[in-house]
């Protein structure tokens, strides 16, 4: 009986998780210092979600439940982390998690706008900003290879991010205006 039931539940889980993975990842990313940390906690969260999937109430939203689990996993991960890392204090992590869980839909809309904004960016700038955000790429090294200094390189990247943010803001607010 159980063996027959499991594949169904497994499929349902995979479907739900896949549908919300990027939301969940984004949520975790706001709590943790780097993409690598986020990957690790996301993986751990997926495991715990699957183990506890029996407790999931299909009447509620999967993402809400997942965020609660992810929040705990992030806190647990935080305690394991070296103190010299740029990891948020517990009280801040909790605030960020509580508020972040309420913003899933806003983030999702911004995500779509960002796709458009990135496409609008001149190709060279787009490549540069992606290059700089490749997980574990050392900006210092990028800068040195480009004959630049880290400070100047960071400044350029900061500006490109700002350009994107402004663009996203424009797209999301005007889209909201059109809808209302």
């Amino acid at each position: 009986m159980e063996s027959e039931e499991k594949p169904d539940r497994y499929e349902l889980f995979v479907e739900l998780f896949a549908a919300h993975e990027s939301d969940l990842r984004r949520f975790l990313r706001s709590l943790l210092p780097t993409a690598t940390d986020t990957d690790e906690v996301l993986q751990q969260t997926a495991l715990v979600l699957w183990r506890k999937f029996d407790q999931f109430d299909p009447e509620t939203k999967f993402i809400k439940w997942a965020c609660v689990v992810a929040r705990f996993e992030a806190l647990a991960y935080r305690r394991k982390m070296a103190r010299d890392r740029m990891v948020f204090r517990e009280d801040i992590l909790e605030l960020m998690a509580d508020e972040g869980a309420e913003e899933i839909e806003v983030r999702s809309a911004e995500h779509d706008a960002l796709e458009l904004c990135l496409a609008e960016l001149p190709e060279k700038q787009r490549k540069l900003v992606l290059l700089a955000h490749t997980p574990e790429v050392k900006v210092k090294q990028l800068a040195a290879d480009a004959g630049s200094t880290a400070a100047a390189f960071y400044m350029k990247i900061n500006r490109l991010r700002k350009t994107l943010l402004v663009c996203v803001e424009g797209k999301t607010t005007s889209a909201g205006g059109a809808a209302s």
């Binding site: 706001s30 911004e110 995500h111 955000h133 991010r161 943010l165 996203v168």
Partner: peptide, 14 residues
């Protein structure tokens, strides 16, 4: 959070 979401997106794309 908004800016980290942007960074996350870039990291994923890259």
């Amino acid at each position: 959070r908004r800016q980290l979401a942007l960074v996350d997106h870039l990291e994923q794309l890259s």
